[in-house]
Computed example of a mutant assay.
Amino acid sequence: MSPDEYCQQKAVQSGSSFYYSFLFLPAERRRAITALYAFCREVDDTVDECTDISVARNKLMWWRTEVQAMLKGNPSHPVTKALQPHLAPYELDGKHFQAIIDGMEMDLDQTRYLDFTGLKRYCWHVASVVGILSARIFGVTKDETLQYAEKLGLAFQLTNIIRDVGEDARKGRIYIPVNELQQFQVPAADILNARHSENFEKLMRFQAERAQDVYEEALALLPKSDRRAQRPGLMMAAIYRALLDEIQHDGFHVLTQKISLTPIRKLWLAWKTYVRG
């Protein structure tokens, strides 16, 4: 199996919504973004699938070393072998790959965030940086496009947090800021024990409205000259916003179930965004 085939398999097996936006890219950019996605999955799985924190730290340290090897042109893992040829053409910065690993390491050190400022820092590492790297692969001519991508990454992560509240709680993690739990009078114990309430719905509605606002802020930053190149991100935004609407329509029953869109609907939303240009 070639490095590119390994990354393709990783993307397909994940069932991620991101995969649908990759389908519309030219072959070379599609290989690059698939390799980036596979890198993110690999380091994320290092934390999520490892029950021993010390082992997870050692694995993340290995990935830090592997990123350095990739930057020097000597990668050993299929993912970094697939990524390495795309670093120079798309001006992918090594510090951003290390920042993603920093974000994964934050999950080993922290399971709560006191306020939105702290949560935004975490989101920057695990999502906004990925947005910046992705935008470079899609094609950038203006700095405002990178600002758009950074903010869009934040919006995606806020959506993930809403969707995965129950799943994260079962791992002992609550990403909703502590001061907002207090503001809406939702004890952490309610989330950890999957107790749905009217106050919980109000809290989640607040989270969803903020996420939608961030989507609007991001889209307002995208220059018209780069809109066509950035269509994969716009496809993802359409899919994720539809998911957010679905979660809200369902009454935010995210503590006991993971709400998702069907593959057909994701493909339809991606296609509709693509033809709209």
Rank of each mutant, 00 (worst) to 15 (best):
A99R: 13
L255D: 05
G15Y: 04
R170P: 00
Y148H: 12
V129G: 12
M61Y: 02
V129Q: 11
A242I: 00
Q257S: 14
E209P: 00
L192C: 04
I33P: 03
A149T: 05
R228W: 03
V165M: 13
D45V: 01
F39R: 13
Q207I: 00
Q13P: 00
N179F: 10
D115C: 12
R210I: 00
R57D: 12
S21R: 02
A27V: 11
P223T: 07
F138W: 12
D44V: 06
Q257H: 13
E209L: 12
Q147M: 11
H249Q: 15
E180R: 12
F39T: 07
C50V: 14
Q185R: 10
T65G: 15
R173Q: 05
H96G: 01
M204K: 06
L261F: 10
V79A: 03
I101H: 08
T111E: 07
T80F: 12
I100V: 15
R241G: 01
P75T: 04
C7V: 05
D168S: 04
A189G: 00
S260Y: 09
F200L: 15
E42R: 12
L158G: 00
F39I: 08
I162H: 04
A88Y: 01
T256Q: 15
G73N: 10
R57Y: 13
V165P: 02
T34V: 10
A155Y: 06
Q207G: 01
I33F: 04
K266Y: 02
F206Q: 14
I247P: 04
D45Y: 09
V140E: 05
D245G: 00
L221Q: 14
Y6F: 15
N160P: 04
T273S: 15
R195Y: 02
L221P: 01
V178M: 09
S14K: 08
G94L: 08
L181N: 07
L269W: 01
A155R: 09
S54V: 03
K151E: 14
D168C: 09
E167N: 04
S260Q: 15
H77L: 06
T145D: 05
L92N: 10
L119E: 07
A32C: 11
E42Q: 14
Q257T: 05
C123N: 13
F206N: 14
A38G: 12
A189I: 03
G139Y: 11
V130F: 11
A220Q: 12
N193W: 00
D44K: 11
K151W: 01
V130M: 10
N58C: 07
P78A: 06
S128K: 07
Y37M: 07
A27Y: 08
R228H: 10
